[in-house]
């Protein structure tokens, strides 16, 4: 893993989304991530691959999980990791974004991990800074490392992704996780369904490479993987759905609804979960749940991504 001589060169300077990645690019990252899982399971977890490199996590939206996952990944690779949480409160978000980015850029980081509430923020930043940028979630656009970790989890459990029926359930409209997963799963040959009330489905969903359903029973029938999405609190009270209890009744995943899926279907959730809203505890903690594995795979995938972007064979052009 250290110098990864066996892995082909990742041909992109940044990871801004799944869009633009070829199936081979995705496979490469998953292969690297598989190796990183092995390292993370050793007692001695620290590598020197990114020793001397500087990683800055620039989070304009609070995210304990993703940020600590990136932080741990960087540390396991030996990078110097700095976390910057920029509260996007009173100041206008966008100004803070570019101003902050230029300031950080002057500190000569090698890799910038960015989360922002605006779609396209990571791409905008990538145009302005001189280092590699990893999109850790930009508005409702993309969250590529989440899709990669989901794919890694599925692949390790099911052997392969091609041909699997994956049902993505919940707030697809506002979900960057859904968009990245739709792109990635299609690229690797899965059959993707989405299940949600139509108020939470984007316009043109039928042309996005998925089969849309508005009833859990139909959408889950025969599914190999059930991927739940988080429903933001502010969208539960009458704006997009009438109430939490109504949403849970029709779209929350409980043991009864899960029966429609295959017996060995995986239950996934990107976290943090709203128990009793989109998912019942009996399922979240049940035997089919791989939610904890997703967290573990998250660290491995982020190690793989950063190693691939800062590949020494790249001659430092990402820096």
């Amino acid at each position: 893993m250290t110098d990864a001589p066996g892995f082909p060169l990742f041909p992109h300077p940044h990871l801004l989304g799944i869009k633009g990645l070829s199936p081979a690019d995705i496979e490469l990252l998953l292969e690297r991530a598989d190796a990183a899982v092995a390292i993370s399971r050793r007692p001695e977890k620290k590598l020197a691959t990114l020793r001397g490199r500087t990683q800055i996590n620039l989070f304009f939206e609070a995210s304990t999980r993703t940020q600590s996952s990136f932080e741990l990944a960087g540390k396991r690779l030996g990078a110097d990791v700095m976390n910057m949480s920029v509260a996007s409160s009173s100041t206008k978000k966008g100004e803070t974004l570019l101003d902050t980015a230029m300031t950080l850029n002057a500190m000569r980081p090698d890799i910038l991990v960015v989360r922002h509430s605006a779609a396209g923020a990571a791409a905008l930043l990538a145009q302005k800074v001189g280092c590699s940028v990893v999109n850790a979630g930009d508005g409702a656009h993309e969250h590529p490392t989440q899709a990669l970790l989901d794919a890694l989890t599925i692949r390790r459990k099911k052997g392969s992704i091609a041909g699997l029926v994956v049902a993505i359930c919940g707030d697809v409209l506002h979900s960057r996780v859904a968009r990245s997963n739709i792109l990635l799963l299609n690229a690797l040959g899965a059959r993707v369904r989405v299940i949600a009330p139509s108020t939470l489905l984007p316009s043109g969903i039928g042309q996005m490479g998925v089969e849309p359903f508005t009833k859990m029973g139909e959408g889950l029938a025969g599914a190999d993987v059930v991927m739940m999405l988080r429903l933001q609190r502010e969208r539960m009270a009458g704006t997009f759905v009438p109430s939490v209890r109504e949403y849970f009744r029709f779209f929350g995943l409980d043991a009864e609804k899960l029966k429609a899926a295959k017996e060995d279907a995986l239950v996934m959730h990107p976290g943090p979960m709203n128990r009793g809203v989109e998912i019942a505890s009996e399922v979240a903690d049940g035997p089919q749940s791989v939610i904890q594995e997703q967290v573990e795979m998250g660290v491995a995938v982020r190690m793989a991504v950063m190693e691939a972007l800062l590949d020494p064979r790249r001659n430092g052009d990402g820096a």
Binding site: K19, G120, G139, A140, R179, S203, G204, M208
Partner: peptide, 15 residues
């Protein structure tokens, strides 16, 4: 403009 393009970009559309 609301439509497929906006949906992929994750941008809210104007119908």
């Amino acid at each position: 403009n609301e439509g497929l393009l906006a949906s992929w970009l994750g941008l809210p559309g104007i119908p």
